[in-house]
């Protein structure tokens, strides 16, 4: 997550450079989509949230505060949008779509899919604050400091929240026989 590269791209985005916009999109679409998916448990909803996140980011790019790191800004928007989405009263049922990686055996694919589904079910069973820190730590690879920056909470709170989140997650995974 290089600040210098992103800063350069953002400057070009502000100037209306579509190539720079696309480069930022290519760089962040997968983590943003994955974070939204892990928060929402629906590919369709994750795609809608991802689209909203990027539109918001690029519409407000000239208001971006360069003292913050870009990834912390975009991840914060992603998590807020996902939480807003969860709060919507009326939602369509998700259309499940499981992509198969042709480079792996069916057995590996099934094991991987089962693990992914089991972990996802456990994530949906814990509260949103806890799910948020787990997503940031384990699916976006953020450090304590980065999680604190994204959520605007002290490192001490990050650590205690992460510990409680893992305890809850462990209980759910143990009950479901995955862990």
């Amino acid at each position: 997550m290089s600040k210098t590269d992103d800063t350069n791209l953002i400057e070009r985005c502000v100037g209306g450079d579509r190539k720079a916009i696309e480069t930022l999109l290519v760089k962040y679409e997968k983590p943003v989509f994955n974070a939204a998916f892990r928060m929402l448990d629906s590919r369709d909803d994750a795609m809608d949230v991802t689209q909203t996140v990027f539109l918001k980011v690029f519409e407000n790019i000239d208001h971006y505060d360069p003292s913050r790191r870009f990834f912390s800004w975009i991840y914060r928007i992603t998590l807020n949008e996902s939480i807003n989405w969860l709060g919507k009263a009326k939602r369509l049922q998700p259309l499940k779509h499981e992509a198969v990686d042709e480079g792996r055996s069916l057995e590996q694919e099934v094991d991987s899919a089962n693990l992914s589904k089991g972990v996802q079910a456990a994530l949906m069973a814990i509260n949103t604050d806890y799910r948020t820190v787990i997503v940031l730590k384990h699916f976006l690879g953020c450090s304590y400091g980065e999680i604190g920056e994204i959520l605007e909470i002290p490192d001490k709170t990050v650590k205690s929240r992460l510990y409680s989140a893992r305890q809850q997650l462990k209980d759910v995974l143990t009950q479901s026989g995955i862990h």
Binding site: R18, I21, E22, L25, V26, E29, K30, P31, F33, N34, F37, R43, A46, M47, T50, Q51, F54, L55, H97, A99, S112, L115, S116, V119, I134, H138, F139, R166, L169, K170, L173, I178, H179
Partner: peptide
């Protein structure tokens, strides 16, 4: 053990047309 379980979950690929939709 819990963390290695979580870290073993693969990242998923976004739908192939998503980038085009956003652009």
């Amino acid at each position: 053990s819990l963390c290695s379980t979580l870290d073993a979950v693969d990242a998923i690929d976004p739908p192939p047309h998503m980038r085009h939709v956003i652009m």
